[in-house]
Write a protein that binds this DNA or RNA. Structure first.
Lengths: 138, 138
DNA sequence: GTAAACCCGGTACCATAATACCGGGTCAAG
DNA sequence: CTTGACCCGGTATTATGGTACCGGGTTTAC
């Protein structure tokens, strides 16, 4: 009886999330409402698996579910008509990503300093700790 | 009556956070418990301002309050004795940061592609959208 | 034909990171 | 000596992103 459609647990398993999470994404509007069979069971098309994987990927890099909803909405227009909205959205997000990368690189260099200090034999006063001083000044 | 000590609202204002947030950070153990005057008012030393700014900075780049608590605890030992714990912590965090940067760069290139597509005059089918295909494959 | 495994919608709960609100105490200015 | 700005601790509420549990219906396998 599988006309190329998946029940919720099959989707969940394939995308490595909980059944509840799939329900939740539908409720939040990230995934569109699935068909139902006679018994009321949700029947998803296979593509939702990729959608969920995309959600997870985007989440990892700091997008909120609302942003991802926006992203998916743009992506899933029936035809791919690149719009100003798409361009603006992409540009905004690129800027955000660049800012985040800068902050991460900055912090990483502080941690690298900390790590290199950690291999020095002589303890020193906090006041002389270059890591601390740099962190404090940003 | 200001013996170099700040009341909570002065701290909050200087660090650009709410009074409640300062209380909250103390409760969470990120900031140490301040002295009290006769009336029970909290009296903070000026250095908490920098501590709060550090918290905010670390938060921006994705550290949780618990991680920041850990970080601050290491930083604020009475003397700066770099320990294995410090080294391990720093190394772990550097690895996390590198992973995050990679993911961000990956996603950024997808967005760049999206943006460049958005400047093309001819609409095309979703199936031909390189952005979509790349996002989907990760 | 019945038991296990699945599905339903709904509600409740969890952690994180705050923010809001409360009645009541304190303090400094006029 | 009162008014307003501040402070106290405590509780409640918010938003986000889920997870857990519920009674009851369905489907599958033996």
């Amino acid at each position: 009886m599988n006309l190329d459609k998946l029940k919720i647990s099959q989707v969940a398993k394939a995308a490595n999330v909980n059944v509840e999470t799939v329900k939740y994404y539908v409720k939040r509007g990230l995934l569109s409402k699935p068909e139902r069979n006679r018994a009321g069971y949700r029947l998803f098309s296979k593509s939702v698996i990729d959608d969920i994987l995309l959600i997870k990927k985007a989440q990892e890099i700091g997008f909120t579910l609302n942003e991802i909803k926006h992203l998916l909405a743009l992506i899933k227009q029936d035809d791919y008509f690149p719009t100003d909205a798409m361009y603006t959205f992409a540009m905004d997000k690129i800027k955000d990503i660049n800012d985040t990368i800068s902050r991460l690189e900055q912090f990483r260099s502080l941690l690298e300093l900390a790590a290199s200090q950690a291999s020095q034999p002589f303890p020193r006063s906090k006041r002389d700790c270059p890591v601390l001083n740099k962190i404090r000044k940003g």
